[in-house]
Amino acid sequence: QEELVKAFKALLKEEKFSSQGEIVAALQEQGFDNINQSKVSRMLTKFGAVRTRNAKMEMVYCLPAELGV
């Protein structure tokens, strides 16, 4: 569980995922086979993730800066 949270936060820091499906796929690539869209959705809510525009003006998920991840 701890490893999943770390990987999840690291992915969001990249600010390149525009959908929950993309986050699920990226986590599965890292070996988290039991991850699915509903789990990702709950984690996004739990950590207060928001959708914002990145440098390329794409809408992407990211974590609020005050979490200091």
Rank of each mutant, 00 (worst) to 15 (best):
M59Q: 06
G68H: 11
K16G: 05
P64W: 03
F8M: 07
F47W: 06
V60L: 03
A55G: 09
L63N: 03
L11C: 04
K56S: 10
E3L: 12
E15F: 06
A49Y: 05
V60H: 03
M57A: 10
C62G: 14
L27I: 02
V24H: 03
V40W: 01
G31I: 01
Q30R: 10
N54C: 03
M59Y: 14
F32H: 04
I23P: 00
A7I: 07
G31V: 01
K16D: 03
D33E: 13
K39N: 10
E58S: 04
N54E: 02
F32Q: 01
A26Q: 07
K56A: 13
E29G: 10
A26R: 07
E2L: 11
V40N: 00
F17C: 15
L44D: 01
L4C: 15
Q1C: 15
V60K: 03
G68L: 09
V40K: 00
L12T: 01
L12A: 01
T45C: 07
Q28H: 10
F32W: 09
E15S: 07
F17A: 04
F47S: 05
Y61N: 02
N36A: 05
G31A: 02
V5C: 15
A7E: 03
E2M: 12
V40H: 00
I23F: 08
F17T: 03
E66N: 10
Q20K: 15
A49P: 02
D33Q: 13
S19V: 05
V69M: 10
V5P: 03
K46A: 14
N36Q: 05
Q20L: 12
K46L: 14
Q20M: 14
V24M: 09
Q30W: 08
A10E: 11
N36T: 14
K46T: 10
V40E: 00
V24Y: 05
E29S: 12
Q20F: 09
K39S: 11
S41A: 14
L44Q: 01
A55W: 04
K9L: 15
A55Y: 04
A25N: 09
I23N: 00
A55Q: 09
S19W: 06
E58F: 04
A10F: 08
V60R: 03
L63R: 02
L44M: 05
L67R: 11
K9T: 10
F17E: 01
S18W: 07
T52Q: 14
Y61A: 02
K6L: 12
A49R: 02
A26I: 06
E58P: 03
E14N: 06
T45V: 13
A65T: 11
Y61W: 15
L44A: 02
K56I: 06
A7G: 02
A7K: 06
K16Q: 07
I23V: 03
G31N: 03
G48C: 06
L11T: 02
K6T: 10
E66S: 09
L27F: 01
S38G: 11
R53V: 14
V60W: 03
Y61S: 02
M43Q: 01
K13W: 11
K56L: 09
F8Q: 00
E3F: 11
F17P: 03
I35Y: 01
G68T: 09
S38A: 14
K16H: 06
G68S: 09
T52C: 15
I35S: 01
R42M: 14
K16L: 07
L4N: 00
R53A: 09
S19F: 08
F8Y: 01
L4V: 07
K39I: 15
N34C: 10
V50A: 07
L44I: 09
R51P: 04
N34G: 12
P64S: 05
K46Q: 15
E15R: 06
V40F: 01
G21V: 12
R42A: 15
V69G: 13
E58V: 09
E22N: 05
K9M: 14
Q30M: 14
F32C: 01
K9R: 10
R51F: 13
Q20C: 07
Q28Y: 08
L44F: 03
I35C: 02
A25F: 11
A7F: 06
M43V: 01
L63P: 03
E3C: 15
L27Q: 00
F32L: 02
I35K: 00
V40T: 02
Y61I: 05
V60D: 02
E2Q: 11
S41G: 09
L67P: 14
F32A: 00
V50S: 07
G68Y: 03
L12N: 00
A26S: 05
G21E: 15
S19D: 08
A10D: 11
E66A: 09
S18H: 12
R51C: 15
A55N: 09
A55R: 06
L4G: 01
A55E: 12
L67D: 15
P64C: 11
A65H: 11
R42K: 14
R42P: 01
E3Y: 09
F47H: 08
K56T: 08
Q30D: 04
A7D: 01
M59W: 15
L12V: 04
P64K: 06
V24L: 11
F32E: 00
